[in-house]
Measured scan of single mutants.
Amino acid sequence: IDAAQIVDEALEQGITLFVVNNRLQYETSRDSIPTELLNKWKQHKQELIDFLNQLD
């Protein structure tokens, strides 16, 4: 699994991931984030931050 897949998966569930001051953040209108997704974010945090920083 790679960062792009995780970002896409989040988007499919209505969650936008982004980076502020090198910290992973998210925006969503959902009430809660699925635990499975949160765990993936934690496991791949640095990859996600690097990936999202490249997009900007």
Results as ranks from 00 to 15, higher is better:
residue 16 T to P: 02
residue 33 I to C: 04
residue 53 N to F: 06
residue 37 L to N: 01
residue 16 T to E: 07
residue 46 Q to G: 06
residue 30 R to H: 07
residue 43 Q to N: 10
residue 42 K to R: 12
residue 26 Y to L: 05
residue 47 E to M: 13
residue 37 L to Q: 03
residue 26 Y to M: 06
residue 52 L to T: 00
residue 13 Q to K: 09
residue 45 K to T: 15
residue 49 I to Q: 02
residue 51 F to E: 01
residue 46 Q to D: 10
residue 12 E to A: 14
residue 44 H to F: 14
residue 1 I to R: 07
residue 25 Q to T: 08
residue 31 D to L: 10
residue 27 E to G: 06
residue 5 Q to M: 11
residue 49 I to V: 08
residue 4 A to L: 06
residue 36 E to L: 06
residue 47 E to T: 08
residue 50 D to Q: 10
residue 8 D to E: 15
residue 40 K to F: 09
residue 25 Q to H: 15
residue 36 E to T: 08
residue 36 E to W: 09
residue 12 E to W: 08
residue 33 I to H: 02
residue 34 P to V: 03
residue 22 N to Q: 06
residue 52 L to S: 00
residue 50 D to V: 08
residue 9 E to Q: 06
residue 6 I to R: 01
residue 6 I to K: 01
residue 9 E to Y: 05
residue 47 E to S: 08
residue 27 E to S: 14
residue 24 L to Y: 01
residue 36 E to N: 09
residue 41 W to L: 13
residue 14 G to K: 04
residue 50 D to K: 10
residue 4 A to M: 09
residue 25 Q to K: 11
residue 36 E to G: 07
residue 42 K to M: 14
residue 40 K to P: 01
residue 23 R to F: 11
residue 17 L to Q: 01
residue 28 T to H: 06
residue 15 I to W: 03
residue 36 E to D: 10
residue 38 L to W: 06
residue 17 L to H: 01
residue 55 L to P: 07
residue 10 A to P: 00
residue 1 I to Q: 11
residue 50 D to W: 09
residue 51 F to H: 06
residue 56 D to V: 12
residue 38 L to T: 07
residue 2 D to F: 13
residue 2 D to I: 14
residue 1 I to P: 09
residue 54 Q to R: 12
residue 32 S to Y: 12
residue 7 V to R: 04
residue 11 L to E: 07
residue 3 A to G: 04
residue 25 Q to A: 12
residue 19 V to D: 02
residue 56 D to F: 11
residue 51 F to A: 02
residue 30 R to V: 07
residue 46 Q to S: 07
residue 46 Q to L: 09
residue 10 A to S: 04
residue 45 K to I: 14
residue 17 L to N: 00
residue 37 L to M: 08
residue 19 V to E: 03
residue 38 L to N: 03
residue 38 L to M: 10
residue 3 A to L: 12
residue 3 A to E: 03
residue 3 A to R: 02
residue 24 L to T: 00
residue 23 R to Q: 15
residue 17 L to W: 01
residue 56 D to T: 15
residue 20 V to W: 10
residue 52 L to D: 00
residue 38 L to R: 05
residue 25 Q to N: 09
residue 7 V to I: 13
residue 15 I to A: 03
residue 22 N to H: 07
residue 50 D to C: 07
residue 28 T to Y: 05
residue 49 I to K: 03
residue 29 S to M: 11
residue 26 Y to C: 10
residue 56 D to G: 13
residue 2 D to Q: 12
residue 42 K to L: 14
residue 33 I to E: 02
residue 8 D to W: 15
residue 19 V to G: 01
residue 47 E to W: 05
residue 23 R to S: 15
residue 50 D to A: 13
residue 29 S to T: 11
residue 26 Y to N: 02
residue 8 D to M: 15
residue 27 E to Q: 12
residue 56 D to M: 13
residue 53 N to M: 13
residue 7 V to P: 01
residue 32 S to C: 13
residue 37 L to P: 00
residue 45 K to A: 15
residue 25 Q to S: 09
residue 36 E to R: 07
residue 13 Q to S: 07
residue 24 L to P: 01
residue 54 Q to E: 10
residue 9 E to P: 00
residue 35 T to W: 10
residue 30 R to Q: 07
residue 40 K to R: 08
residue 15 I to F: 08
residue 5 Q to P: 03
residue 45 K to M: 15
residue 16 T to G: 04
residue 19 V to R: 01
residue 46 Q to Y: 07
residue 15 I to G: 01
residue 44 H to K: 04
residue 52 L to W: 02
residue 20 V to T: 07
residue 48 L to K: 00
residue 9 E to G: 03
residue 24 L to F: 03
residue 1 I to G: 08
residue 32 S to I: 11
residue 1 I to H: 09
residue 30 R to S: 07
residue 7 V to E: 01
residue 20 V to A: 08
residue 23 R to Y: 09
residue 38 L to Q: 06
residue 41 W to T: 03
residue 25 Q to R: 12
residue 8 D to G: 14
residue 33 I to Q: 01
residue 48 L to T: 01
residue 31 D to G: 11
residue 29 S to A: 12
residue 44 H to W: 12
residue 32 S to D: 08
residue 1 I to T: 10
residue 35 T to K: 12
residue 54 Q to M: 11
residue 20 V to M: 09
residue 35 T to L: 13
residue 35 T to H: 10
residue 15 I to V: 10
residue 18 F to M: 11
residue 46 Q to P: 04
residue 15 I to Q: 00
residue 50 D to P: 02
residue 10 A to V: 02
residue 14 G to M: 04
residue 45 K to R: 10
residue 44 H to S: 05
residue 23 R to E: 15
residue 53 N to P: 03
residue 20 V to H: 12
residue 18 F to G: 06
residue 23 R to I: 15
residue 13 Q to N: 12
residue 11 L to D: 05
residue 47 E to A: 13
residue 25 Q to C: 15
residue 14 G to L: 04
residue 21 N to D: 14
residue 1 I to W: 11
residue 7 V to C: 05
residue 10 A to C: 05
residue 3 A to Q: 03
residue 6 I to W: 06
residue 21 N to V: 04
residue 47 E to V: 12
residue 29 S to F: 09
residue 15 I to Y: 08
residue 43 Q to C: 07
residue 42 K to P: 02
residue 13 Q to F: 14
residue 28 T to E: 02
residue 28 T to D: 02
residue 38 L to K: 06
